[in-house]
């Protein structure tokens, strides 16, 4: 009996170690696979180079267009997703009648559960032609990707904002109303500011989702590895994620290493975002 207890206890400990092991393996293999390549290209030429031409001789592997591209579509997603998300979260937490809530909450879960290929396909058949009709260009653009990503981060932003709005003590609202504030004023002037760090956490998590999204973005963004200015939002752009998924299938040698290094850059962005998120969550708690 005691032996069995001991064996199972050991098994439990070993299982608990897998999470640590997994993070360790991911870091080691990602860095070992990507950093030598980035070193061969030259860290500065790699990070700040504006030319990505793996097929040329000599090839050039500059990922600045992709870094900037990822930043554009992420910023665009925040621009669309966050204001809509915050207002919708206020609706869910403070305005929505209870019977309606029972329908809308599962609808939000559904929005979160729809696979990114389905979003990407929806973007291809609806948003791309729409942008093309309304603004010209060929439709696959920074704007299109931003709109689609804005939709995709909505459930994340709404979910976290809603729960942080609900965590604000009711006395604050009652106090504001007692002082003569209207319902809207009490919500937007008192409750929303009180939930500030939770809302910031929602935005940060939204940024993480948007910057890491791959397939949907690749399907609508056009994927030209060209450095764009913010004014060229109707032109195509390639993100870090799209760069990997487009070329990983056939890349060899230094090209493959450069793609893995692209992944490393994305990984570092994500680690920073995660740190920020947990710092914000700690401040809220």
């Amino acid at each position: 009996m005691i032996a069995k207890e001991r064996v199972m206890r050991a098994i439990f400990i070993i299982s608990a170690l897998t999470a640590i092991l997994a993070v360790g393996l991911i870091c080691v293999f990602l860095f070992a696979g990507g950093l030598p390549g980035a070193g061969k290209i030259g860290i500065f030429d790699f990070l700040l180079g504006t030319e990505w031409k793996p097929g040329d001789s000599p090839p050039s592997f500059g990922i600045l267009p992709m870094i900037i591209g990822s930043l554009y579509v992420t910023a665009g997603a925040i621009l669309f997703g966050v204001p809509i998300g915050i207002f919708a979260a206020v609706f869910m937490a403070k305005v929505c009648p209870k019977p309606l809530y029972k329908v809308l909450k599962p609808a939000l879960d559904l929005l979160a559960g729809i696979p990114s290929v389905v979003y990407g396909f929806f973007g291809m058949v609806i948003i791309v032609p729409l942008v093309r009709e309304l603004f010209g260009g060929n439709g696959s653009s920074i704007l299109t990707a931003s709109i689609l990503l804005g939709i995709m981060i909505l459930p994340t932003v709404i979910g976290i904002t809603e729960s942080s709005l609900r965590a604000v003590p009711g006395e604050l609202y009652e106090g504001a109303v007692a002082l003569g504030a209207s319902r809207e004023r009490a919500v937007f002037g008192v409750i929303v500011p009180a939930a500030k760090s939770g809302i910031m956490a929602a935005v940060v998590l939204g940024v993480g989702r948007a910057i890491g999204e791959t397939m949907a973005v690749k399907m609508v963004a056009g994927n030209q590895a060209v450095l764009r200015t913010p004014g060229e939002f109707l032109k195509g752009v390639r993100t870090l994620t799209a760069n990997v998924v487009l070329e990983m299938g056939y890349a060899e040698g230094l090209h493959r290493e450069a793609l893995i290094a692209t992944g490393v850059v994305l990984f570092i962005f994500i680690l920073i975002i995660n740190l920020l998120f947990s710092a914000l969550k700690r401040r809220e708690g």
Partner: peptide, 20 residues
């Protein structure tokens, strides 16, 4: 570590899986 894992986007898992 668990929180770190849950924040990693799927393309990173794809790259890792492909290498490892």
């Amino acid at each position: 570590m668990n929180e770190t894992l849950s924040g990693i986007p799927s393309i990173i898992y794809g790259i890792f899986g492909s290498i490892f």
